[in-house]
Amino acid sequence: MAESYATEHEVSHPGLQHHFENMDQQREASALGMWVFLVTEIMFFGGMFLAYTLYRWKYPESFEVASNHLDIWLGAVNTVVLICSSFTMALTVYCTQIGRQQLQILFLVLTMIFGVTFLGIKAVEYKQKYDDNLIPGRLIPGHPFNPSVQEEGKPADKHKLHLIPGATVRNVELFYWIYFAMTGMHALHMIIGLGIMLVLLFFSVRGRYGPEYHNPIEISGLYWHFVDIVWIFLFPLLYLLGRHIGHG
């Protein structure tokens, strides 16, 4: 902590900013800074999780019906994709720490590919919801929330809502707004993360990061893992909660 850097003056590294005494202090500050930033992110998403919890508690049937209508396979595949990207991100940090620059770049690129794949699958899902008229409110002008409802005795149609007693179309719409708000905000964070990685890639190719200096890679990794964690919660809360009532 503060006492440890009083006297030592190591050879100045080009990555050391002038107002820090040494690399250790700089690394500690940047890691702490990112964790504090992640606290703000937790509170930011926390507001939406609170809204989710409240309405799931108020309208359990509608939420089960609406959740059942999401595509569990696409959701599960996306979870796996995101876990893969977290894994390769962890390996990017590792390879930087041990000074394997080629591998570092390789894993960084892989992480980005997984990230883009995730967004692609997400886009496919959004398109499906668009086709089924499940975009809430006037989010898309001229395309209001207007799903068709499965009627009794007709052959099951996976494009139709299977309402159970207690569920209403109005509250299904509320679920879909929360769904789009949360996954949309999550996707926005992914896009920002990919932008950051583009910058990291630019400097990695130039050999800026190595065992001595890799704060940017490390803290970007923290951010990326955090985005992964948000999804780890979104997947069960949004996709799985009504699965047990059957008929997808």
Partner: peptide, 12 residues
């Protein structure tokens, strides 16, 4: 966009 988390008319 008239999507309701807070509006009682929309279930909020």
């Amino acid at each position: 966009a008239h999507v309701g988390i807070f509006d009682p008319a929309l279930g909020g």
